[in-house]
Nucleic acid binder design. Structure first.
Lengths: 347, 347
DNA sequence: CTGAAAGCGCTAACAG
DNA sequence: CTGTTAGCGCTTTCAG
């Protein structure tokens, strides 16, 4: 009764109640073997009685493990528009899927993700500081633009990190990715398989490797089908940009009968524009999206799309990071996932 | 050169380089006044030179502040379907907006949010443990169902916490919320102002206070306009549930010419069904949504909707939490935001 | 205004 | 198998 009742119980308190030493209590708390069964029970009772919960700061201080990782979304962030970046990013169902996958993997492992956005130099320094402070044991990075300096800084600082998607500039760092070219091929095959002969594509931002790969893969596959030229319009992975791109495409190539959009959001925008111009989907023009995210199910007609197993990829990313945390110095590794075609009504 | 170059520099290292004591370095790092200007500069130089970053665990151990808060999404989670809950939740644009608002507020305050989902008893205990461990200084709670036991446990444990939305069961805890009734009234006024006389509503899950309040507010406003009876169909805040509810409504009340959906996702579903049944929107039936989230902009026609300033509310939630963390024992407080009607094409 | 010293709560050798 | 003993890196009285 000497300490105020508000102070949380410590190992010492439990030890006193159980009549053993701190070390013993620590052993049973941490599940170390080598503790007599009877004593274990006594200790456990004492823990219950005191309501003890180990103090994570104290533990971290000695184990040098935070038990948290940083989940960072990094991107351009127009100066003065910082919050807008976060808003845009979190409005994209893609990030929800990443978060969901990461959480699903981490939840049983007693590691927790700290959400961070790195859209300005200041924010990037925050992220680096956070990691160097040991506040997180490593970083999961989802980059939305090509010139992101974070991957390079992370490897330079020798901080454990895993990216979602191959970095635009080559950097020796682990990442998970999709075989985008194979995915685009799936779309091309579907479109020409359905008899489409005037096929165009709405690409993602072309400084992003994934966009490049989807375009390349699509073109290659079309070429192999005997179509040497594919009209393209560049979008920005948003619904609005998909609309704009489709308008341009339609203006220059009114005869198109097939469309591949590099993600579902843009495909959704394309659908809107197509309908506005009186084109029936899929009768007049078939459209295939990419991702298989929520919008694909909500729009009408429902989207035929190339599925990217984002949750699985995110989980793998977390798994990889944890191995890097446990085994510093492990060489970078990449894990590539296979896409799958999901056929619905649009194409 | 005695320690391995991999070990991060400590206060001690900086002190040695600067030729001062640890305490002095600590003072300049923490911006305490009372330090000679010249010495400050020397110390700062030493910090730069060594690349020092304060160890957060060590700091937390003594300050009893984690510098992080928990951002927890809590909900039902069908047994065996844990991950599905997270997936569903993160697919909802609403949560992205919450995250965005929280991050926007926290980013300049050197506090970071840890993402957690509490959909099972085990997960709830994790959350409680996390907080009691001092891993986070408090919790921001977004609850998706009425029977959530977390709010009560949080107050019982005297842990700083703020909810998004008033809890279903009365609990002395801080929260931010919207004046849902006022929002619903905005929708009713709009609909009857546009001459609609057969108005129905798709509600949210009726065990959730927000759904209740929107329904009550809507009914009251309609009654004041002279319409004593409003057909309703209950939905679950998802697009699919909105479709189903609208189907039911149309089957029983084919003559409706106005529809209020308790969120945009359901309104989006309603649009689909209405169009499928050949009803033009807004000519044949006007529809008004709620939230003003992303789907409202993407669907066609674009949704007239009641705006909920989610980002601002989330920011306020974070602000409130921080005051509770700084001043334990402060009485619970509620902050209620005003809705606004956003007129677009649907109604 | 600065330094010395005492811990914060925990884990990890190291003895016994 | 259990207890003793050092710290982990930092903040914070308390002297000077």
């Amino acid at each position: 009764m000497s300490r105020p009742p508000t102070a949380p119980p410590t190992l010492e308190d439990v030890a006193r109640v159980a009549g053993v030493s701190r070390a013993t209590v620590s052993r049973v708390v941490n599940g170390t073997r080598n503790v007599d069964h009877k004593i274990q029970e006594v200790v456990r009772a004492a823990i219950d009685k005191t309501g003890y919960a180990p103090n994570r700061a104290a533990r971290s201080l000695v184990t040098k493990r935070a038990g948290t990782i940083a989940l960072v979304v990094s991107g351009a962030g127009d100066p003065g528009e910082e919050d807008a970046f976060a808003a845009r990013v979190f409005a994209d169902p893609f990030f929800g899927r990443v978060a969901s996958g990461v959480l699903g993997f981490l939840r049983t492992r007693n590691v927790h993700p700290v959400l961070m956005v790195a859209d300005t130099e200041r924010a990037r320094e925050d992220v680096m500081g956070f990691l160097r402070q040991g506040s997180a044991d490593g970083a999961l990075l989802v980059s939305t633009h090509a010139e992101d300096p974070l991957p390079a800084r992370l490897v330079e600082a020798e901080l454990p990190a895993v990216l979602f998607a191959r970095p635009a500039r080559p950097v020796p760092i682990s990442y998970v990715d999709l075989d985008h070219q194979a995915g685009a091929k799936l779309a091309a095959d579907r479109l020409v398989g359905a008899g489409r002969t005037q096929v165009a594509t709405v690409t993602g931002p072309l400084d992003v490797p994934a966009s490049q790969d989807r375009l390349t893969g699509f073109r290659d596959a079309m070429a192999r089908h005997g179509f040497p030229y594919v009209p393209i319009a560049e979008g920005g992975f948003t619904s609005a940009s998909g609309e704009a791109a489709t308008e341009r495409l339609l203006a220059e190539h009114p005869g198109i009968d097939g469309l591949f959009a590099a993600n579902d959001l843009m495909a959704q925008g394309a659908l809107l524009v197509l309908q506005k111009h009186g084109r029936r989907v899929p009768e007049d023009v078939a459209v295939v999206g990419f991702d298989d995210s929520n919008p694909a199910l909500v729009c009408r007609p429902r989207l035929t799309t190339v599925r990217q197993p984002v949750e699985d990829m995110a989980a793998e990313m977390a798994r990889l990071l944890l191995t890097h945390v446990d085994q510093p110095g492990l060489p970078p590794k990449s894990v590539i996932f296979d896409p799958a075609l999901v056929v619905r009504e649009s194409g």
